[in-house]
Structure formats: C-alpha cells, structure tokens
Computed example of a mutant assay.
Amino acid sequence: MDFIAGKVVLITGGAGSIGLAIIKNLLNHGAKGIAIVDISEEAGRKAVNEIGKIFDEKRITFIKTDITNKTELEGAFETTINAYKQLDIVINNAGILDEIEWQNTIAVNLVAVIEGTYLAMQKYLPKYKSGEEGLVINTASICGLHSFQINPVYCATKHGLIGLGKALGGDEFYKKYKVRVLTICPGLMNTPISGRPDGFLFPEVLEKEVGAVCLVAQASERVSEGLIEAIKKGKNGSLWVIENNEPVYEVVVPQHKTMKV
C-alpha cells in the first residue's frame, strides 16, 4: 500500500511553485488532507483555487503563517489537527535566499525548520499519526553539499539541514518517536526562489559557479516526483538528491577520516 494514501500532510512554503507541485502529487497518491502553510495570503488563496479545480477542496486547507514566529507555526499544527483530526507527514519546504539581510535566511531556512521538525517529532506526529510511523521531510539543496561564494549563508543553512537530518534520523530518536526523517537536495531550478532579487553576492560569477555543478535547470514537477520516490525508498536519516532531470538518488556523507588529504 502507498505510504501516502490516507495520510494528512502539513507543508510549509506550500503556495510556492515547488510546494504546489508536491501537493498535487501527494493528492494524486491518495493523501487524505493537506495543510498549505505559507506567509503569502494571496499566493495561498491562489493555490487553493488552482488545486480545487482538480481535487476536492475539503482535502486542502490554507493556513497563513509566518514560520519564523514559533507561536504562529505551532498554531498551524493546531489548525491542521482541528481540520483533519490527524497528522502523519510534515514537509519543511519553505526557503528564501537573501545574502544582504542574511539573518532572514537563517531564520526561515534553518531556525524555522528546526522548530517545525521538533514540533512534528516531539509533539504532534507521535500523538496524531494514523499509522505506526510518522514522517518528516526537510528540503535542503545541492548548496548543502557544495559551497558557493555567491550565497554563503544560504549554503550554511542547507549544510545545517543535512546535519540535522542525519542526527535526527538516528536510531534513538526513531525508537522514542517512531518518526522517519528524510532530507531532499534539489539542484538548480527554473523557478524563482523567494527572497531579494539582489540576494546573491558576486552575481558576475553566478553562472560560472552554479554551472560547474548543475547542468540543467529543472521544473518543480521533477522535485515533486523525486520526493515521492524518496518517501517510497528512503530509510530513516537518508539524504536524496534531485538534479539535472535525473532520477532521484541517495547520497551518503562520508566519515571525516575518509576525506583526509
């Protein structure tokens, strides 16, 4: 049986292009209900309208939320429970790129994801999951596996999510909470990223730096397809790369001694 069928999902950044593609794919796989958590009321309502043309609107709920505000973030979890009486999957997908006011990047990409992950693991999934296992998926980036001069703080946040997923995907956490943790790393996208238009540093080397790693800019649908495959195949604590329109694949961060020069 498909793990997604009958499940309730909360996804942050759900009104963006990647979030929207993920939601449609989850609904296609039988998700019972999805809470779309996003800071933009306009984008959220637009997303509900678009999804409602294809699926039953009772299966989707928009919750306007500033995820950097812990009270609002927890309120989104509570609203989801009130709407569906269960919660099985939490996808911390929201992210921005702003190297000028870089504190915002840390607040959204790292702190809010940690808060969302702990709320999911420690408070909500163990109590409200409908099956034996809950699931948390955090969206990192290929920038969590490489370092670019154009976006150092963004890279730092995504490196942090990879470390978070590996640690929380350990046996002791699983035994205590029965929650599987996966991390996905999308490559270059052909969709705009939230943040400042001038959020990159050294824009003159952007194409050179990114082009050395990512060959193809992929559509949001590719990330959603890769995420579904990761859910089906991914073991607790595993890390999955979705890039260059290739099939999703697992990567393993090496033990430090194997990297000695």
Score class of each variant (00 low, 15 high):
F55P: 02
W102D: 00
R222Y: 05
L188H: 12
I106M: 01
I60H: 07
G226D: 03
P247M: 13
E243G: 03
A47I: 02
G134D: 03
L10K: 04
V241R: 03
V253F: 08
L10V: 03
N138G: 04
G131S: 12
V251E: 07
G165S: 13
D171L: 06
T183F: 02
D38I: 09
I114E: 08
T117N: 06
K175G: 12
I11L: 02
I231E: 01
D88C: 10
L26A: 11
N25C: 06
K166H: 12
H159T: 15
E225Q: 10
T139L: 05
M189L: 13
Y177W: 10
P197S: 11
T61F: 07
I162V: 15
T68D: 05
Q122F: 11
G165Y: 12
D198G: 11
D2F: 09
G226H: 01
G30T: 10
A76M: 00
I114T: 05
V241L: 08
F55Y: 10
G195L: 01
N245G: 02
E101P: 08
G75P: 03
H159C: 14
L10P: 01
I22E: 01
K24P: 01
K32L: 14
E209K: 09
G134R: 06
T79Y: 08
K70F: 09
L201V: 11
I51R: 04
